[in-house]
Structures are given as structure tokens and as C-alpha cells.
Design a protein around this nucleic acid. Sequence first.
DNA 1: ATATTTTTTTAGGGGTGGCTAAAAATGAGT
DNA 2: ACTCATTTTTAGCCACCCCTAAAAAAATAT
Lengths: 217, 217
Amino acid sequence: MTTLSEENYLKTIYHLGQQGTIAVSTNAIAEKIESKASSVTDMVKKLADKNLANYVKYQGVSLTNLGRLTAASVIRKHRLWEVFLVEKLHFSWDEVHDVAEQLEHIKSLKLVNELDAFLGFPTHDPHGDPIPDKNGNYTLSKSINILQMEVGSQGVLVHVKDSSDVFLKYLNKTNLALGDAIKIMDFEPFDGSMIIQTNSNTINISKEVAKNLYLSH
Amino acid sequence: MTTLSEENYLKTIYHLGQQGTIAVSTNAIAEKIESKASSVTDMVKKLADKNLANYVKYQGVSLTNLGRLTAASVIRKHRLWEVFLVEKLHFSWDEVHDVAEQLEHIKSLKLVNELDAFLGFPTHDPHGDPIPDKNGNYTLSKSINILQMEVGSQGVLVHVKDSSDVFLKYLNKTNLALGDAIKIMDFEPFDGSMIIQTNSNTINISKEVAKNLYLSH
DNA sequence: ATATTTTTTTAGGGGTGGCTAAAAATGAGT
DNA sequence: ACTCATTTTTAGCCACCCCTAAAAAAATAT
């Protein structure tokens, strides 16, 4: 049985492992988890002992199949709970994270599967992230970043990369939500800012914001 | 902020405190929590430091107002989650306890209150226990133990005292459920057993079982 | 009233998961 | 190839929550 702390490490290594590099550095983990490298070393040894991670001194960490499955299970629970909170309990998408962070550690297979059914087997959470199935598999939607799109083209906002409080609150304030149809009106090469149009209004967004918006093909 | 362990102690002291005695003994707590008296002494000191309990060496423990409120909040969450599990996720009443035991520690005021509303502000959990309101208050239903009732009288099963797995499974097996109309057919003074009748069948129950069944007046 | 039993506390210790500070290994620049 | 800066690990320590064994207080019996 994995502890709460172990699960948080697995989740973090899983996420960092997705971003390109094979082995994840202890420093990267420490930063993400807001801890220290020395604490990470300790925990990573423990994960290796439990056959959840592969660890070679000074050479970073990767997940074993078991570790990857466990991480995917935690992420599955996190995202299912987010759907529950938003769709059934009137949470907004910028309020769900902290609570889902707690709920994701509840241990009960029946609970997860019944919750999944109760929600109608959702495929994506409120931020557009895919929900892994029981085997840890999910299909990545072929969305593209808005900066890659041409002026005049359009698409539907299906995913936001940053799901921090500040960013989601900004989106709320500017009336941007998942599912919105968006048309690219103008791109400014000088600072990378864009002018985009939704059904309801026209918005000027900075490059930093644009980096986090993904539209369906 | 209270830890998981502290909350479990508060809950236990709260329950034991209800049963008559003013101050609860460390041994009683240890037994209920399946721990040792020495561990209880340590924790109880900690609770006193945090102004959650009153503790005098060798004289037992009682809760402060703050402790009582905190305990009631945990119990409120436990019972609300039980309702959720049974009514929305197809759990049976003998499956909910372990999961609710985990869910009761999730910290989010909004979560509890929205869940309460989502469930239609239930007043009792699946075992007939009352759900405290936000202020920790609840009204005890004036149910009486079946052993106190006379042969020939009848009532509705509204509460079961023991909510252990074994007992609830026994009730399932004998087709007894909360809300059943029950008529007392016979009482046997020799061993305290009873013969009772529901809508569907006639059952012989032992004194040990009868002790745990409460009917509405 | 005193001896005995039971209850409760204290003392000391273990595992988890975190920290700081110092040491060791790695990798970059010359 | 070797020094220097950075990264990572080790060593030692702390808080939490539990334990066993021994001591102390309280309750009970004679």
C-alpha cells in the first residue's frame, strides 16, 4: 500500500517524466513538490525499494510499470473528483484543485469505479486534461497551441496547460472558458500578443497567456 | 489545523462521552481506537495543549467546546458521505464505513456544505444516526429499543446501534432494513430472544441482536 | 489500615517524512 | 586535464504518532 506522500511523489515524477526527458532529476522533483533535494533522495530510495521507481545515484529517477500505473490511478481519481466537484457541487474550475488533491488519495476501488459511472464515464476533466482509464491509458486529443495557428483560422478551446489559481481566475475574468469557439483575429510579432474573438467578445491576450491555450484541430 | 489522528481521537472521545460518564478514561479510548493507553496519554496531552480537550492526570478526558465542535464536524462529514455512497454510488450500508472513515477527514467547508445541499439536506445516515448541522447540533429521534416494547406493539426500524460489518451483514441476510415496519410477536424471558414480523417474513432474533434495534415510538 | 490489583503515566525507542549543513560526484570552462 | 560551480547525496537532527517496559497513582480487598 502506498502512503499519501509516496503517491504525491509518483504523481510528480509521472508529470515531469512526460515532458521529454527520460530520467527526472531530484532537483526538479524538489522544486515541483516544494521540498528539498535531500528529502527527495530519501523518498526516491524508498520508492525504488518498493519497486515503484528506478533509481541510480546521481542519474535521476524514472517510474517502473507499477509506479506508472499507481501514478495514473491517482491522476484518474484526481480528475474524476474534479469533474464531480464542478458538475455536481457547483465548484468553479479554479476552486477544485486543492480539494481534488485531498480526494485523490482515498483508497477504494469501488468508489472510483462507481464515481466514474455516476459521472457518465467522462473522458476529460474541467481543464481539458484526459482522464486515464482503469489501466492507466488515455488518448491525447490532438489539440494545438493557439500560437501555432494562423490568423483567420478558428477552433474550440479544449485544454489549458497552466491550471494554477491565478491563471484560471484570469480566464474567468476575461470570460474565456473550455468549449468556447475562438477565432484568431490578429497576431503581433513584436511581443507575441494576439487578438482573438469568442462568441461574446473580442480579447487581446499576451504571449504568456497564449502559450497556455490549446484549441481542437 | 487538526491532523487525521487528532480527529480520530476527538471522534472517539465524543462518542464515549455521550454514553453517560463525564470524563472518559484513557483505557476506554485505547480500546475503542485499538491502540495502547500510553499512546492515548501522549495524544490527550497534545489535544489539551491545542485547547481541544480538558485533561487532568489520572482523571480522564473531556472535550472543550472547540473539541466538541470539531468532533461534530468530522461526524457530520462521515455521515453525509455515507448517505452519498449509499444513495448515489450504490454502496450497501455494510460497505460504507471504511470509505467514509477516509472521506471524513477531507478539509473543505464548501465541499461539505455543497454535498449537504446535493443530497437534499439529509437528517440521518444509512444506519439511522442523526447528521449534525453546521453548528454541531442534531435532534435525537425518540426511538426506543425493541426490548422495551410490549408484545403486540409495532413500530418502524429507525436506528441500529452497532454498525459493524458483521452485524449489518447479518441484518442483510435476515432481510431486515431501516424503514421496515416491525411487529413484536413474542418475547422469551428465558434467553431474551424475540419473534418479530416484518412485511415480508417472521424472524426469530436473539437478545444480542434485539439490543441493537431501535424503533420509532 | 495496609496489601494487592488495576489503571495510568513516564521513560525510552522506532518508523516516516521532513529539514540543514557538509561531503561527494558530476559537468563546464579554460 | 584540471579547477570551479552546480547538483546530488550523506549525516545528523526534529516532529509526529505509535510502541514496550517500568514506575507511580488509584481503586479494591482483606
